[in-house]
Amino acid sequence: MNRRFVLVIFVMVASFTTITIAQGQEGFPTDNDVNDIAKKLYCPVCPNTPLDVCETKACQDWREQISVQLSDGWSEDQIIDYFVLQYGERVLAEPERGGFTSLLWLLPVIAVLVGLVVVWQALRSWRSARLIEMQPVPSQPEVSPETLAKIEKELRKLA
């Protein structure tokens, strides 16, 4: 009983200390913490500009807001959800999957599959057109550079 009690206290103190140290280092949240989240968002106003590199005052305010939210203990998901709610879906670097936007991912996959089928069919039809004097077809002798060099040497002797 005693040992367990000590163990629990120890764990609590250790975690508390670790968290405090982690937050205390350089003053949580650091610029990097903010950027980690800002990287995943786009500036709501400027076109196609990620939030961590955008230089406008508006983006400064948003990063400041992320910083405040982080120090209030918000998780990354909560912050991102808040941004989507406040500013619309365009702040996400890729649209949330579901419904219509799943087409974005589906169509290229379908295109590749269809393409593979087409290529397969084409190759098959090409292969079935054969020369009639085909018996066991020797593989085309690879005209290696060595052979070619030798042949050219011989030809030059003839010329």
């Binding site: 879906e89 890729e94 649209p95």
Partner: peptide, 26 residues
């Protein structure tokens, strides 16, 4: 096709669903 589709998709999405989205590097 993938690049073309990803480039025009924001336009398609806005036409169909009315919401503006971004299709980015990911």
């Amino acid at each position: 096709f993938a690049v073309f589709f990803g480039t025009v998709f924001p336009l398609i999405s806005e036409l169909v669903t009315g919401t503006k989205i971004t299709v980015g590097p990911p």
